[in-house]
Simulated scan of single mutants.
Amino acid sequence: MSEARSYPRHVKTDAGDIEFRLMSRADEATVLDFARALPPHDLLFLPRNISEPKVLVAWINEIERGAITSLLAVKGRQVVGCGTLVRDPHSWSPHVGEIRMVVSEDVRGQGVGRALSQETFALALGAGLEKLTVQMTVDQRGAIALFESLGFRAEGLLRDQVRDVDGRTHDIVVFGHDVARFQAQLEAYGVPGAVE
């Protein structure tokens, strides 16, 4: 298991300086503003509609309980992205974590999503997880390309899995990444801290 990561962390992107910090209850209003500014289709990345205040409160409760770790990508005072690592140590799959991520439209294509996904991946390594999953609708090609470039591979297709606000159903593709194998390869090459 890697050392625990410390926050805040700063990353230079084409969108400018981005601060990564852990989400807390104090972020509720700014995260709600971020979520409500997202296109409705982007919310299908997530199992719940985070633009609803009651869902956001439940999310923060899960962070405080320790079931979820959420990183905010902040530019200036504005949240421009959120990466979440979800794990359930009491389930049949305590070795598996799920990444949930969404990035503001105005910083897409500028390295923010890549930096956020790498940072979230590094959190998974630090947590000792052996496998990661991520899911998205099949038409979210930019996100699919991003996660494939990080070594995730398609493992399943769930037909008509989510319903958007207009009542249309969408297929979800599930990607997986063998974190344990990746970590072993890093250590074999003598670069265990490559993602730090």
Score class of each variant (00 low, 15 high):
residue 67 A to W: 11
residue 68 I to W: 12
residue 68 I to Q: 07
residue 68 I to G: 05
residue 70 S to N: 02
residue 72 L to E: 02
residue 73 A to H: 08
residue 74 V to W: 04
residue 75 K to R: 13
residue 75 K to N: 15
residue 77 R to M: 11
residue 77 R to P: 04
residue 78 Q to M: 09
residue 79 V to Y: 10
residue 80 V to Q: 01
residue 81 G to Q: 03
residue 81 G to S: 11
residue 81 G to P: 05
residue 84 T to I: 11
residue 86 V to F: 13
residue 87 R to Y: 12
residue 87 R to K: 12
residue 89 P to Q: 08
residue 90 H to R: 12
residue 91 S to R: 04
residue 92 W to D: 14
residue 93 S to N: 06
residue 93 S to E: 13
residue 94 P to G: 08
residue 94 P to E: 03
residue 94 P to V: 01
residue 94 P to Q: 04
residue 97 G to R: 08
residue 97 G to V: 14
residue 97 G to W: 09
residue 98 E to G: 03
residue 99 I to G: 00
residue 99 I to N: 00
residue 100 R to K: 10
residue 100 R to Y: 14
residue 100 R to N: 12
residue 102 V to K: 04
residue 102 V to C: 13
residue 102 V to F: 09
residue 106 D to N: 09
residue 110 Q to F: 01
residue 111 G to Q: 09
residue 112 V to P: 05
residue 113 G to A: 13
residue 113 G to P: 11
residue 114 R to Y: 01
residue 114 R to G: 06
residue 114 R to H: 06
residue 116 L to F: 02
residue 117 S to K: 02
residue 117 S to V: 07
residue 119 E to Q: 10
residue 119 E to V: 02
residue 121 F to Q: 07
residue 121 F to G: 05
residue 121 F to W: 12
residue 121 F to P: 02
residue 122 A to G: 05
residue 122 A to L: 08
residue 123 L to C: 14
residue 123 L to Q: 14
residue 124 A to Y: 10
residue 124 A to N: 09
residue 126 G to R: 00
residue 128 G to C: 12
residue 128 G to F: 04
residue 129 L to C: 10
residue 129 L to Y: 09
residue 130 E to Y: 02
residue 130 E to V: 02
residue 130 E to C: 03
residue 131 K to W: 12
residue 131 K to H: 09
residue 134 V to Y: 02
residue 135 Q to T: 02
residue 136 M to W: 00
residue 136 M to D: 00
residue 138 V to W: 01
residue 138 V to E: 15
residue 139 D to Y: 06
residue 140 Q to H: 15
residue 140 Q to E: 15
residue 141 R to L: 15
residue 141 R to G: 11
residue 141 R to W: 15
residue 143 A to Y: 04
residue 145 A to S: 10
residue 145 A to R: 07
residue 146 L to N: 00
residue 149 S to L: 08
residue 150 L to V: 06
residue 152 F to G: 00
residue 152 F to S: 06
residue 153 R to H: 11
residue 153 R to S: 15
residue 154 A to E: 15
residue 154 A to C: 12
residue 154 A to R: 13
residue 155 E to V: 04
residue 155 E to L: 08
residue 156 G to P: 01
residue 156 G to H: 01
residue 157 L to H: 11
residue 157 L to V: 13
residue 158 L to Q: 13
residue 159 R to H: 10
residue 160 D to Q: 13
residue 161 Q to P: 03
residue 161 Q to S: 11
residue 163 R to G: 10
residue 163 R to I: 15
residue 164 D to W: 03
residue 164 D to G: 08
residue 165 V to P: 05
residue 165 V to M: 08
residue 167 G to N: 12
residue 168 R to P: 07
residue 169 T to I: 06
residue 169 T to V: 13
residue 170 H to Y: 14
residue 170 H to F: 10
